[in-house]
């Protein structure tokens, strides 16, 4: 039972009636994500809601829970495994805790462009990994996008790895990222994001690496003056569903879910590309200096040890990806 109907009509003091659902009662699906309502994930969730409700003639209703109200990404995934959460738009990093191979996408400089990434993610390799999520009771519907990650810092302009040397940079708690930045000579500080936001203000941490939309959403220009287009890693995100729930849907609805997820993922990628120019302008207007021509080959050279260390861990996956690009 859910208190999901229009709330203004009735006083909320009565107990919810536990009605036996007639055939026409819509299925209510609760979709959670951990970012705010200006974020691409929310954009994706909204489009997904619209199209699903439209194509199922209102037989499926989607309720969106932004801002992590029903859990952080790790617990959202767990909730989907158990069936206490129905759906989520989730960043690739935490998914790798459940399916280690999917961390392959976090490898530095794996993709040179968005187009390359889409080709691989939407192709055979991507589909294979999405399907593998079923082993952990998750139905992977489609890959959507967080985006290429770039470096920002408060200390100095960064064009080459040598410029980045010694900077205290917040990274995600993820061995590949940590080793990537260690290979660049950076003092890589794994820290929870909220803690990092305070640490930027006091200078306990001097930089971070995230897609432009994150630098924009969190107004990082307040503490960081320098942005470098390092594009060191492309972060996908996934539209996930509880496998338990997916299996309970009829074939037609299942197909709608998958196709709408794929369509809206593409819409989100396009939207991110459109928004990026506007966001960069805002960053510039707020005094950020943007280095668009970083010495990428030098960065690629510097992170080679990361491939030596992790390459074998992913078996033939890296090769498959390179072939599919």
């Amino acid at each position: 039972g859910g208190a999901s109907n229009e709330p203004k009509n009735e006083a909320p003091k009565t107990e919810e009636p536990k009605a036996e659902a007639p055939a026409s009662e819509p299925i209510v699906i609760k979709l959670g994500h951990t970012v705010n309502e200006q974020d691409p994930y929310h954009y994706n969730a909204l489009r997904f809601k619209e199209l699903v409700e439209q194509r199922t003639n209102g037989q499926v209703k989607i309720e969106i829970f932004p801002n992590g109200v029903i859990g952080d990404e790790r617990t959202l995934i767990e909730g989907m495994q158990v069936g206490t959460v129905d759906m989520g738009v989730i960043t690739n990093g935490p998914i790798a805790n459940f399916l280690p191979e999917i961390a392959v996408f976090e490898m530095p400089f794996l993709f040179a462009s968005e187009a390359e990434a889409y080709k691989v993610l939407d192709g055979e390799v991507g589909q294979k990994l999405l399907n593998k999520l079923e082993q952990v009771n998750i139905k992977g519907l489609a890959f959507t996008e967080r985006g290429f990650r770039n470096l920002t810092n408060s200390k100095r302009p960064v064009k080459t790895p040598a410029d980045a040397k010694g900077l205290k940079i917040r990274v995600m708690e993820n061995p590949v990222y940590i080793d990537t930045f260690k290979a660049l000579g950076v003092n890589a500080v794994p820290m929870a994001w909220q803690e990092a936001l305070t640490a930027f203000q006091s200078g306990a941490v001097e930089g971070q690496e995230n897609p432009i939309n994150v630098a924009f959403a969190f107004k990082l220009y307040e503490s960081h003056k320098y942005l470098t287009f390092t594009r060191h890693s492309y972060a996908p995100a996934s539209i996930l569903m509880s496998k338990k729930l997916f299996d309970s849907l009829d074939k037609e609805t299942q197909e709608i879910m998958v196709s709408v997820a794929k369509e809206t993922a593409q819409m989100t990628r396009d939207w991110i590309a459109d928004e990026m120019e506007k966001q960069l302008q805002v960053l510039r207007d707020n005094g950020m200096e943007i280095e668009e021509n970083a010495d990428i080959p030098a960065f690629q050279e510097a992170v080679k040890p990361v491939y030596e260390k992790y390459g074998s861990k992913f078996g033939s996956l890296i090769e498959e990806i390179n072939k599919a690009k």
């Binding site: 859910g2 208190a3 999901s4 709330p7 203004k8 006083a11 909320p12 609760k30 309720e63 829970f65 109200v69 029903i70 859990g71």
Partner: peptide
């Protein structure tokens, strides 16, 4: 808190009061 959020109880009460 999870229960209150999941069944959107605070928003329901808030909307009633704000009307």
């Amino acid at each position: 808190s999870w229960i209150l959020a999941n069944w959107q109880i605070p928003s329901m009460i808030a909307n009633t009061i704000l009307s």
